[in-house]
Computed example of a mutant assay.
Amino acid sequence: MAGMSLMALGLFQFEALGFGFNDRSKSQKTSWAKIPVAGGMDRMQWTGGDSQTETIGGVVFSHFGGQLSLEGIKAAAANGLQLPLVDATGNLFNVFGMYVVEDISEQQNVFDGQGAPLRNAYSISLTKYQGGLSPVSALSAVVGLFS
């Protein structure tokens, strides 16, 4: 561990140094159906929630480490794993639920003499998973990636 853990996606910890993040955004969508009414304005009926999404962005610097965690998240995404998102703010742990990685983008720059990036800005797009896999099963699947 390179620093204090701030948040975790599965076994991958976002830290103050190393695999850190510098922004996080959330979005929640809901659906409403328009019901035509004769002689008046259309009525609205709530039909449920569509999705909850989170986007986590940060920068990995090779001299602080963290690229292996990003590669691990990419491997979990490539294998279709659901991962728990946990926030460790202060003395409290908030479990936000199970999420799937829908997109990871990277922007690598400042290269060393061998062509390896010294700076790698990333963005991870997550969507809340509504399904049947338990957090314990998901963590077991993540551990299986490394065995």
Rank of each mutant, 00 (worst) to 15 (best):
G40Q: 10
G40N: 14
G40H: 12
G40T: 08
G40K: 11
M41H: 06
M41D: 12
M41V: 11
M41F: 05
M41Q: 11
D42Q: 07
D42P: 03
D42F: 04
R43L: 05
R43I: 02
R43G: 03
R43H: 06
M44G: 06
M44I: 06
Q45C: 05
Q45L: 11
Q45R: 10
W46G: 12
T47L: 05
T47M: 07
G48S: 09
G48D: 07
G48I: 09
G49I: 12
G49D: 13
G49R: 14
G49K: 12
D50P: 00
D50S: 12
D50Y: 03
S51R: 07
S51M: 05
Q52D: 10
Q52V: 13
T53G: 15
T53D: 14
T53C: 09
T53M: 11
T53I: 12
T53K: 14
T53S: 15
E54F: 06
E54D: 13
T55A: 13
T55R: 07
T55D: 06
T55K: 07
I56W: 01
I56L: 06
I56A: 00
I56C: 03
I56D: 00
I56P: 00
G57S: 15
G57I: 01
G57E: 04
G57A: 15
G58E: 02
G58R: 01
V59H: 04
V59P: 01
V59C: 15
V59G: 04
V59A: 12
V59W: 01
V60E: 02
V60Y: 03
F61Y: 15
F61K: 11
F61Q: 11
F61M: 14
S62K: 11
H63E: 14
H63R: 11
H63Y: 14
F64D: 13
F64K: 05
G65W: 00
G65I: 00
G65E: 01
G66R: 01
G66Y: 00
Q67A: 11
Q67C: 04
L68F: 03
L68C: 03
L68T: 10
S69G: 10
S69M: 05
S69K: 03
S69D: 08
L70E: 08
L70Q: 12
L70M: 10
E71G: 04
E71K: 09
E71F: 04
E71S: 12
E71L: 12
E71P: 00
G72V: 04
G72R: 04
G72K: 02
G72D: 06
I73K: 02
I73F: 03
I73Q: 01
K74C: 09
K74A: 15
K74Q: 15
K74H: 08
A75W: 06
A75S: 13
A76V: 08
A76G: 10
A77D: 06
A77G: 13
A77K: 11
A77L: 12
N79M: 08
N79I: 05
N79R: 14
N79S: 10
N79H: 14
N79V: 06
G80H: 09
G80C: 11
L81Y: 02
L81W: 01
L81Q: 03
L81I: 09
L81T: 04
L81D: 02
Q82H: 13
Q82L: 08
L83F: 07
P84R: 05
P84C: 10
P84L: 07
P84I: 06
L85C: 07
L85E: 04
V86M: 13
V86Y: 03
V86N: 05
V86T: 10
V86L: 15
V86W: 02
V86G: 04
D87Y: 07
D87M: 11
